[in-house]
Simulated scan of single mutants.
Amino acid sequence: MKKLINDPKDVVKEALEGMALAHADILRLAPEPAFLVRADAPVEGKVGIVSGGGSGHEPMHGGLVGFGMLDAAVPGPVFTSPTPDPILEATKAVDSGRGVLHIVKNYTGDVLNFETASDLALAEEIEVRSVIVDDDVAVKDSLYTAGRRGVAGTVLVEKIAGASAERGDDLDTVAGLAEKVNANARSMGVALSACTVPHAGEPSFDLGEDEIEIGIGIHGEPGRARIAIEPADAIVDRLLAPILEDLPFASGDDVLLFVNGMGGTPEIELYIVFRRAAEVLRERGITVTRHLVGNFTTSLEMQGCSITVLRLDDELTELWDAPVHTAALRWGR
């Protein structure tokens, strides 16, 4: 194992400290139990938004804390859910009296621990809504989930819900828009290589030199099929077909196309993927009006990518375009 780390036990702690130092104008690191929170939280008159999950998917979620997106991000150990205590403390830290939205990826540990934290917050008279993200079309009832997994579509939910909260919408409206994004987003990924969790010291699964895994999860969970590697265009076609059939997307739709790197794939390859995905959508009469390309929901150093397609309407487009200022996403401000 070759990694730029010190002690594997300190990876998350030291990464959080580094992020807080690098982006002190945007966020701060709360003391134990640790979480990242907007530097100006709680924001008066604004619904708070909290997300989180296991570390190793950076910049999601800590890199998405800031104006127009998350108010706090709660990290667990690598690929392990955070416990209820820091989720509760983050919820309290961002509550301005208008309630708090929890955005939770559909992994069993995340769902259970956010539910517990929500109950504890209610006991302290904080109104909480939860939206579960389950955008992955690859498999149902995986090793980590009951139902579909929450993957890169979470970034889109957080951006649009964050813009809604920033413009002053109430909790029901913010939660409703988050649910709308989730209902209209579909994702699927591919792995070209495994990743190595620092405390494990060895790859999380085995792939042959000529093998890829179609439909991989962001923790290295198995997907739909293990096949011999193919040209990029053929892989994109394999990923897009179930995405487009699942909603289903149709000719005349306006969409946001999101090509997400899994951590170890260079941008030159992500743009090759985007090129083919945009071509397929155009052939089907689907118009890409917004896009995002880059590493946002990673799996440590895994090579591979995921594709997310979100069906847009005027309101979702306006909220996507709204200003945002985080470590990982920033425009219009």
Rank of each mutant, 00 (worst) to 15 (best):
P248V: 12
V324T: 05
V181W: 00
R167Y: 04
G109T: 08
G150P: 01
P82A: 07
M262A: 08
S187K: 02
A228Y: 07
G62N: 09
R224D: 05
A22W: 03
V139I: 11
K180A: 12
E158H: 11
M302K: 03
D237C: 14
A327R: 00
R38A: 02
V273E: 07
G62F: 03
L300C: 02
E209F: 14
L316H: 00
D321H: 00
R276P: 05
P75Y: 01
L120K: 10
D313T: 04
V324R: 00
S51F: 02
R224K: 13
V236D: 01
G168L: 09
A152P: 11
H102S: 08
V100Q: 03
S306F: 04
S96Q: 08
I103Y: 06
T196C: 15
E89F: 07
G56D: 02
L88V: 11
A163W: 03
D135T: 04
D313S: 03
G62E: 05
F35V: 05
S164A: 15
R224M: 10
L270A: 09
Y107G: 04
Y144W: 09
V133W: 00
A232V: 15
I126Y: 00
V255K: 02
T326I: 01
V151A: 13
L312G: 01
A178N: 08
V174P: 04
G147T: 08
L171P: 00
R98N: 10
E202M: 14
L192Y: 08
V100I: 10
S51L: 00
P203S: 11
H102L: 11
G201S: 14
A200C: 14
R284M: 07
R333Y: 04
K159S: 06
P42M: 09
K3T: 13
D110F: 00
L21R: 12
L312H: 02
R276H: 12
D141S: 11
D210P: 12
A241T: 14
L270F: 05
D10H: 12
G48N: 06
G56P: 00
L122S: 05
I5S: 03
E179Q: 15
S299N: 11
A161C: 10
V137G: 03
L36K: 08
R38Q: 03
I243V: 10
N295I: 13
A34I: 05
L70H: 01
V37S: 04
K2P: 05
C305A: 14
K3G: 09
G109D: 12
A90C: 10
S118M: 12
G153M: 06
D172W: 13
A72S: 07
F35S: 04
A178M: 09
V37W: 00
I268E: 12
T298E: 08
M1V: 14
F296P: 04
V157N: 00
H57Q: 09
V37E: 01
N106A: 13
A183R: 11
I216V: 15
A200R: 15
L156M: 09
